[in-house]
């Protein structure tokens, strides 16, 4: 059975049931779609150039022309939130993609070969685990300079241990089950065991971890931007916007910080809800 078959056979059934039983999941998915839509199609609909100074009043509240208000330099917040979208979303996606594929590969190698291969890989993973993600990102920035490329790569590495430990434990448990021995005894080839049995068995776990990892990556990258280690101005993501709006908070103009902050929280919340559901599904599949 191929991965495609699993996806084709299961997902519609799940979403149909979900719509009835799990309004929270549906809300999360709708939110994510809406955010994705705004990020992709946003520049077409927004009326202002995100970097146009004094497009409106300084620190203006929400109005018809500026639905989310204007910032301390009179720029349209909606336009800036939309413009900051890709930088805020693509970074975490890259982190998840890299850390999940790399981490799963390391874990599969570890579990499959065992012995000294496992020993060395596990040691490497332990070392990475000992360095907090934020520290690794900061170290990368001090080596390569400000910008999100270095932190994205650093976080992709920093997230390896979580993915790899989980997948390694799952793979070892799976390989220890009698059906794996049965496949061997039948003479089924290693490639077939790996791609037709082992990886499909672990896929739900990997997907669930990917969803949760996205949330963490988004928070960590936004934190790095917030700390002023991200992309230099004028280009800016949500983290930078939150930081730059901080002085206005005390002047009674919270919009500049609050709206991007709300977006970050909403995105992470939605992704976490989806991830939690995938985890439950994964556990149900593997028990």
């Amino acid at each position: 059975m191929s991965v495609g078959q699993i996806a084709a056979g299961r997902v519609p059934a799940i979403s149909r049931r979900a719509a009835k039983r799990d309004p929270l999941l549906v809300a999360a998915l709708v939110t994510l779609c809406a955010i994705a839509l705004v990020v992709i199609a946003g520049p077409l609909i927004s009326a202002f150039d995100p970097n146009q100074l004094y497009a409106g009043p300084i620190s203006g509240g929400p109005s018809l022309t500026h639905p989310l208000g204007t910032d301390d330099l009179g720029r349209d917040i909606l336009a800036r939130v939309i413009a900051g979208g890709p930088a805020s979303v693509i970074g975490p996606l890259v982190v998840v993609a890299l850390s999940t594929t790399l981490g799963s590969t390391v874990a599969l190698l570890s579990a499959w070969f065992g012995g000294w291969v496992d020993g060395i890989l596990t040691r490497v993973i332990e070392v990475i685990f000992a360095i907090p993600g934020l520290v690794l990102a900061v170290l990368a920035v001090s080596m390569f300079g400000k910008g999100l490329v270095a932190p994205v790569i650093a976080l992709s590495i920093a997230y390896l241990p979580v993915v790899s430990r989980l997948v390694r434990a799952g793979a070892r448990a799976e390989l220890g089950k009698p059906y794996m021995a049965a496949l061997r005894i039948q003479g089924v080839s290693s490639t077939a065991i790996l791609f037709r049995h082992l990886i499909p068995a672990l896929l739900p776990t990997i997907l669930a971890q990917g969803a949760l990892g996205f949330g963490y990556a988004m928070l960590d990258l936004a934190a790095i931007s917030f700390l002023g280690l991200g992309a230099p101005p004028p280009s800016s993501d949500w983290g930078v916007m939150i930081a730059s709006g901080q002085p206005s908070l005390l002047n009674g103009a919270p919009e500049q910080s609050l709206f991007p902050a709300l977006l970050v929280v909403l995105t992470v919340l939605s992704v976490n809800i989806v991830g939690a559901r995938v985890t439950v599904w994964a556990e149900a599949k593997s028990s």
Binding site: W112, L175, G176
Partner: peptide, 10 residues
């Protein structure tokens, strides 16, 4: 015994 890795290529 059932938990030992069974797919030892060596």
């Amino acid at each position: 015994t059932s938990n030992l890795p069974i797919l030892d290529p060596q």
